[in-house]
Amino acid sequence: MARPVFGRASVTHLDRDRGLVEAARRDRQQFDALYRRYLAQVYNLAFYELSDHHAAEDATERTFLAALANLHRFEERARPADGEGASTFRVWLFRIARNMIANERREKRNHPAVAIEAAGTVPGTTNVEGGAVARDEAAAAWRAVAKLPADRRRAVVLRFVEEMSTAEIAGILGKSEGAVRVLIHRALKSLGRELEPKQ
């Protein structure tokens, strides 16, 4: 969806979440729709970053409370380059999440928790032996991702788990799209070295 903007040659794209954001600004109870839409995504990022369900829940809770309290500060900035269906609200929300997760990580550093629980989260299968292999492989992938430097790890999680575009990831991480592409490319190369069977 797009609308012409007078006085400019370009076309400004509407934010996919514009309707929900405007409804939530009029009546804050309507924030629930935005919450339901993005809860799982925010929680996913928090869980991959913090490797702990309770810490992920804390970070998710703080993220949505901060978003609700600061909704009046959100400015829609969708650009044509963001493509159809882009959501600058999602980028804004994930920037809050990134900060909350960073705070949670700092707290966790003082109180170290258990390792990532990947094995328990891989979807089940009727083939028990195959399921165990799948879980081992998934756990290995999670461990390899967890070992990446912070920016590469976030970029990989946002790209593969949240399936975000490079433009969205750039907005969340505060980097250029080119920098994000290079981050992901380098991350894939180092993950390949980690995950490929040794010759």
Partner: peptide, 9 residues
């Protein structure tokens, strides 16, 4: 592999 193993929780 990442597409397959990095599941959503």
């Amino acid at each position: 592999r990442l597409r397959r193993d990095l599941v959503r929780v």
